[in-house]
């Protein structure tokens, strides 16, 4: 039961998808579209698993006092702060006690994690957590410059949610992406110390293509390099890509077939 049912499901759905590819009829299309929706919806449920894992690992780091455990609080604060912003919004331009409320909630989380991690003296963090929780509840009840939104999307448009997205997520994301420029420089340096024939071939091709962007060669040489590099991109590149694509395609097809037939079941664990 534990192993057979999933394998039968894989076989059934796999065969159906192969089958539907050849059946253009509306009814097969109908099931196909629903199946794709299902996968998408199940994926959203899975996010909860991920958040749980992130929480558990962070708390665990604090508990075991693994090195850099203090930063786990930063992760937890970012996580709970952002979730809170996604479900609350201010009514107007007044801030009221909103930020203090957020701080109280975050401190409650941090103190309860602290209480979980503490071996002795659990009382102090626990008491503080209770205190902060009380503060948060009181503010939530009496402050009406903002409120919770559990069933409309105000949270997504709230100032803080947007601010965290625009001024924390996006800058870090763009910066890490731009680190690629430095890393590619060091990778290029690594490639320069070509150790063998294959690495040299790679290096020469890379140099030719890169030289196309340098304006120092004069018109004739520049023109020649541009032509060679575009030939490299269009001809040998095309050939090698095609060989890889055919290979990868066969690999994917064979693996998919093994999965459908239940020959490859490594992904399912054994227990």
């Amino acid at each position: 039961m534990k192993r057979q049912v999933p394998l039968v499901l894989v076989l059934l759905f796999g065969l159906f998808m192969i089958f539907q590819y050849f059946v253009p009829h509306e009814s097969s299309e109908w099931v196909y579209e629903f199946l794709l929706d299902w996968i998408y919806i199940i994926g959203i449920f899975a996010l909860a698993l991920g958040i749980w894992s992130l929480y558990v690992v962070s708390v665990d780091k604090v508990k075991t006092r693994k090195h850099d455990w203090g930063y786990s609080y930063v992760t937890l604060a970012g996580l709970f702060g952002m979730i809170l912003f996604g479900f609350t919004a201010r009514h107007g331009d007044e801030w009221g006690w909103y930020l203090i409320f957020v701080a109280c909630v975050l401190l409650t989380v941090i103190m309860s994690v602290q209480a979980m991690a503490a071996r002795i003296n659990k009382g102090l963090p626990l008491g503080l957590a209770g205190l902060f929780l009380l503060g948060a509840v009181l503010i939530a009840v009496f402050d009406d410059t903002w409120s919770f939104y559990f069933y409309t999307q105000e949270g997504l448009q709230s100032t803080m949610f947007r601010a965290f997205f625009d001024y924390i997520m996006m800058p870090i994301l763009a910066t890490i992406f731009s680190l690629l420029a430095f890393f590619i420089a060091s990778a290029a340096y690594r490639a320069f110390r070509a150790r063998n024939l294959l690495a040299s071939l790679l290096l020469i091709a890379a140099l030719i293509v890169m030289m196309r962007f340098f304006p120092y060669f004069g018109e004739n040489v520049g023109e020649f390099i541009a032509r060679v590099s575009s030939w490299l991109m269009n001809v040998p590149n095309l050939a090698a890509q095609r060989a890889i694509i055919i290979g990868v395609g066969l690999g994917i097809v064979a693996t998919a077939l093994k999965v459908i037939l239940g020959i490859e079941r490594g992904y399912m664990g054994k227990g």
Partner: peptide
């Protein structure tokens, strides 16, 4: 099996399985 990423792995890694070799490895 992402063709565009193979060059970077080749440059920075000690061993790289190219495309189909990943499936062979499995």
């Amino acid at each position: 099996d992402e063709i565009a990423q193979i060059p970077f792995f080749i440059v920075a890694c000690d061993y790289t399985l190219i495309g189909e070799e990943l499936y062979a490895a499995s």
